[in-house]
Simulated scan of single mutants.
Amino acid sequence: MSVTTTSRMRHLLTYAAFVAPAVLFFTMVILVPFMRAILFSFQDWNGISSDIRWAGWSNYTKMMSDTGFLKSFSFTIKYVLATTILLNVVGLLLALVLNLALKTRDFLRTAFFLPYVIGPVIIGFIWQFIITRLFSEVGKATGWVLFQKNWLSLPDYAFWSLIIVTIWHSAGYFMVIYLAALQGVPKDMLEAAEMDGAGRLKRFWHVVLPLIRPAMTINLFLAISSGFKGFDLNFALTKGGPFGTTESLAYHIYLDAFTKNLFTYASAKAVLFFLVLASITLVQVAVMKRREVEM
């Protein structure tokens, strides 16, 4: 065996030694359960008994008349739209402000990012206490009717409670991504635009915004995917209430699988959920990437 072949084999073995654990972990934790979920979606099983029957497409056809599933799907779409828009708008505004030469900008960056470090379940329980206990005290002290209501017992208020807590929790993370993009904008281009007579708004619209488009692509992807997969805050803050009006799709599937023992039916919903999320994500990334090239 030549020296070149021996060296090549050594490189391949070294590469395999480093890559194999990650591939094995991905296969066992993600790929195998995903393939099993697809198989389960065509079966009839409660997750406990040894009697597993073949159901064909019945689990999928049953979803079309499942009002609970359709209701949670509608809520999830509204939740994703609201959080995607607000997270990107608030994150960008915070980044624009903290990109200025403020004396307290380092402290403010830390303060806005800090909520994201805390777990969503803990955040949900903290805000549940704030909304149910502290808001009523504020309402008594100020006389404001808005704070005298129990937000989590009213459908519209419960929805916006979830939105507000989500923005408070995650806006700092989006701010950091936008801030990194803003700091990469060449100053000479901004100075040239200013010398040509472009005001702040025109400089932002025609110079800054096109250059931070990759950050927008990343943040839109993160907002959409995290919005569809939202479970922790939904579980800790509202538990799908009142009357199932704030039941996200992920939480709905969890309830079907682990509280109603509709294991295979929940698997079918999960597979359909994956296909919808993957399709939306692929379209969104393709459109944003095309616009980046056009810019």
Results as ranks from 00 to 15, higher is better:
88 N>E: 03
35 M>N: 05
83 T>A: 05
94 L>F: 07
44 D>V: 05
54 W>S: 14
67 T>K: 12
97 V>T: 06
76 T>L: 08
39 L>W: 08
80 V>Y: 01
78 K>N: 05
77 I>G: 00
30 I>R: 05
36 R>P: 04
78 K>S: 08
63 M>F: 12
85 I>C: 10
30 I>V: 14
37 A>S: 15
94 L>G: 02
94 L>C: 05
79 Y>S: 00
85 I>H: 04
88 N>I: 08
45 W>T: 14
87 L>C: 03
77 I>P: 01
102 L>D: 02
107 F>I: 13
38 I>G: 00
65 S>K: 11
96 L>Y: 03
46 N>P: 09
105 R>Y: 03
106 D>S: 10
39 L>H: 05
87 L>I: 00
57 W>V: 15
46 N>A: 11
64 M>A: 15
95 A>N: 04
69 F>M: 13
58 S>T: 15
43 Q>C: 10
91 G>V: 06
90 V>G: 04
52 I>N: 03
45 W>V: 15
106 D>R: 13
107 F>S: 09
62 K>D: 14
36 R>Y: 02
80 V>S: 04
111 A>R: 06
96 L>A: 07
98 L>W: 03
43 Q>S: 13
93 L>N: 06
51 D>A: 13
95 A>Q: 06
46 N>H: 08
40 F>Q: 09
104 T>Y: 05
36 R>K: 13
50 S>G: 15
54 W>R: 11
